[in-house]
Simulated assay, not measured.
Amino acid sequence: MSVTTVNPVLRVAPAPPAEAAAYFRASLAFHTDVSDVAAAMAAEGGPGFTLVDCRSTESWDQGHVPGAVHLPTAHVAEQAGRLLDPAVPVVTYCWGPACDGATRAALALAELGYPVKEMRGGFEYWVREGFAYETRQGTERPAADPLTVPVDADDCGC
Score class of each variant (00 low, 15 high):
residue 43 A to Y: 03
residue 8 P to N: 00
residue 14 P to C: 07
residue 104 R to I: 04
residue 118 E to R: 10
residue 90 V to H: 06
residue 155 D to F: 04
residue 37 V to L: 00
residue 70 H to L: 10
residue 111 E to C: 09
residue 147 L to H: 03
residue 4 T to I: 11
residue 70 H to T: 02
residue 128 R to S: 14
residue 37 V to H: 01
residue 102 A to T: 02
residue 136 R to D: 06
residue 74 A to S: 05
residue 128 R to D: 05
residue 103 T to H: 11
residue 93 Y to I: 04
residue 48 G to H: 14
residue 33 D to G: 03
residue 82 R to K: 11
residue 80 A to Y: 06
residue 120 R to H: 06
residue 89 P to Q: 09
residue 91 V to M: 11
residue 10 L to Q: 09
residue 46 G to Q: 08
residue 59 S to K: 11
residue 97 P to N: 14
residue 60 W to A: 12
residue 87 A to Q: 14
residue 140 E to F: 05
residue 98 A to M: 07
residue 58 E to P: 02
residue 120 R to S: 05
residue 128 R to K: 14
residue 153 A to M: 06
residue 141 R to N: 14
residue 72 P to I: 02
residue 67 G to N: 10
residue 27 S to P: 04
residue 4 T to V: 04
residue 11 R to I: 15
residue 34 V to C: 12
residue 158 C to Q: 12
residue 102 A to D: 14
residue 23 Y to W: 15
residue 8 P to L: 02
residue 5 T to Y: 03
residue 87 A to G: 14
residue 69 V to T: 13
residue 78 E to I: 04
residue 52 V to D: 08
residue 23 Y to L: 15
residue 53 D to V: 03
residue 123 F to H: 02
residue 92 T to G: 05
residue 26 A to N: 15
residue 41 M to N: 02
residue 14 P to W: 05
residue 48 G to E: 07
residue 105 A to Y: 05
residue 79 Q to A: 09
residue 68 A to Y: 01
residue 57 T to M: 09
residue 128 R to M: 04
residue 133 Y to R: 13
residue 33 D to E: 11
residue 21 A to M: 15
residue 96 G to C: 07
residue 133 Y to I: 12
residue 62 Q to P: 09
residue 52 V to P: 11
residue 60 W to C: 05
residue 18 A to I: 12
residue 6 V to H: 00
residue 9 V to P: 02
residue 38 A to D: 03
residue 6 V to L: 13
residue 144 A to C: 07
residue 77 A to P: 04
residue 127 V to M: 10
residue 68 A to H: 03
residue 29 A to Y: 01
residue 43 A to L: 06
residue 157 G to S: 07
residue 43 A to K: 06
residue 73 T to C: 10
residue 40 A to V: 11
residue 9 V to G: 13
residue 75 H to G: 09
residue 106 A to I: 02
residue 72 P to V: 10
residue 11 R to L: 15
residue 20 A to I: 08
residue 142 P to I: 06
residue 68 A to M: 04
residue 134 E to D: 12
residue 146 P to V: 05
residue 24 F to K: 00
residue 112 L to V: 00
residue 23 Y to S: 08
residue 95 W to H: 15
residue 76 V to Q: 15
residue 61 D to E: 15
residue 90 V to L: 07
residue 153 A to P: 04
residue 80 A to H: 12
residue 103 T to R: 05
residue 21 A to R: 11
residue 2 S to T: 15
residue 115 P to W: 01
residue 65 V to P: 09
residue 148 T to S: 00
residue 12 V to D: 09
residue 12 V to L: 10
residue 54 C to Y: 08
residue 152 D to M: 06
residue 61 D to W: 03
residue 44 E to G: 07
residue 33 D to R: 10
residue 118 E to N: 10
residue 101 G to P: 06
residue 32 T to S: 10
residue 37 V to C: 05
residue 124 E to D: 15
residue 127 V to T: 14
residue 88 V to M: 03
residue 14 P to D: 09
residue 42 A to L: 06
residue 32 T to H: 13
residue 116 V to H: 03
residue 142 P to S: 05
residue 114 Y to G: 13
residue 155 D to H: 09
residue 110 A to E: 14
